[in-house]
Amino acid sequence: MLKVALITPAGRGSRAGNRATATRWAGLLRELGCRVQLVAPDEDFRQPHQANSPPDLVIALHAWRSHAAILASRQVLPQCPLIVVLTGTDVYRFQHSHPAVFLDSLEQASALIGLHTAIADDIPSRFHTQLHTVLQSALPLPPGAPRPGRRHFNILVAGHLREEKDSLRTALAVRDLPSDSRLRVVQLGRAYSVEWANAAHEEMACNPRYQWNGDQPHWRVRQWMARARLMVISSRMEGGANVVSEACVAGLPVIASDISGNRGLLGDDYPGYFPVADTEALRRRLLRAERDPAFVAALRERVVARATAFRPEAERDALARVIAACGLNCRERLAQ
């Protein structure tokens, strides 16, 4: 049985995207016949493997946050293949603010994983031969899921409140709309700071079209996806947001900021983009969606067409291909 150490910077119980990815991948790798152990970056990497059973493969989520664990794995297990997974903050923030650490993690890797198809354009070309794409998957909404109501045209924003997400952009876009507009914004996610929490509360106090419901379990997020008519992804940077996969599989139309991380999931010719941080452009897109059913239908048609790329078996098979590129074959072990 192939033994995998999966390093994730998000601890047990976290609803951060890195933890969701690690948990889902652990399940997919087990389907492939692997034995998986989740490891935090600040753990003594040697400790879980002292009993003469070192891992056959190390996978590290986040090149910057997991850098110490990446170095430790190379010191303790120099012959063990190492896969480094590139996140949005890795590529679009820490590559520029902490280039030595970011590049060192990539240099240590046997293979790299990007979570959207355009990420090769955003890393040095010398790493392209090591780069593989694994698109994050999602499950369909369950039968009998809630349906959108008629009173409001609900827009969902799902993601923790922080700078990278430009989290209040959609709320700003629905201020001072015509009185007959039915647009309402429901935002789900934990505030990453007191300042973000205060900003959300202040926005609710002055903007009757905005509601922040805080951190929610995944099943509640899926309920809101079923109730919404549209989702907005307003991020300034993304490494390949799983919420985009979720929306596509749910058939929920998306309005997205025009960034590589969204284009690498929805395609260059997707008709629902708006310029980053452009409140007026986003407002125009939202009003058009409310008033033009054909526009919403066109967006829905496109996300539904993309949904097949986000099936769990596609993600599992992509992981198997990366493992094979490292000289390991989990499927043979599964057959045994």
Rank of each mutant, 00 (worst) to 15 (best):
D258Y: 07
E246R: 08
P124K: 05
V91T: 05
Q336W: 10
R306D: 03
R150L: 10
D268V: 07
V244H: 07
G33A: 05
A305C: 06
A294F: 06
A5G: 15
F153L: 11
E203M: 15
G17V: 13
A63C: 13
A138D: 08
A120Q: 08
A335D: 08
A10W: 10
G114S: 13
S245F: 14
H218I: 03
D90I: 05
L287V: 03
A5Y: 05
A309D: 15
L299R: 12
L282V: 07
S257V: 03
R65T: 04
V58G: 07
L252I: 00
L106T: 04
Q108T: 04
Y210Q: 05
I155D: 01
E246C: 05
I59C: 11
E290F: 04
G159P: 02
I259A: 04
V232T: 14
E332H: 13
L77H: 15
W212C: 02
A309P: 01
G267I: 07
V174K: 09
A5N: 06
Q75W: 12
L29E: 03
S167F: 15
L252Q: 01
R227N: 05
Q50F: 11
R24C: 02
R229A: 01
L266G: 07
Q75K: 12
T87R: 08
R316E: 01
G327M: 02
R147Q: 15
P148W: 12
R46G: 03
L77R: 09
E280C: 07
I119Y: 07
P143F: 03
E290Y: 04
A10E: 14
K165D: 02
D278Q: 11
V85P: 00
P146S: 06
E31V: 05
T279N: 07
L252F: 00
L82W: 04
A199Q: 14
L57D: 07
A60Y: 14
K165C: 00
D215M: 14
A138T: 08
A228W: 08
E195M: 03
S193F: 01
Q136R: 14
L135T: 08
C206A: 11
S110I: 10
A191F: 02
R150W: 06
A314Y: 01
V296A: 03
G27Q: 15
H67R: 14
L319D: 01
A191C: 00
M237Q: 13
A60M: 07
L230E: 05
G261W: 09
R15F: 13
T129C: 00
Q136L: 15
C206V: 15
T308W: 10
Q130T: 00
R35L: 06
L328Y: 04
A20H: 14
A294T: 06
N198K: 15
V185C: 08
D104N: 11
V186L: 12
L183R: 09
L168N: 08
T170I: 10
R288D: 01
G251T: 01
H62L: 08
R169S: 12
F102G: 02
L61F: 15
L156N: 01
N18Y: 07
E107Y: 09
P140D: 13
H152Y: 12
C248R: 06
L230H: 11
I259E: 03
N52F: 11
S66Y: 13
E332C: 06
D42K: 08
A318G: 00
T117A: 11
R311C: 01
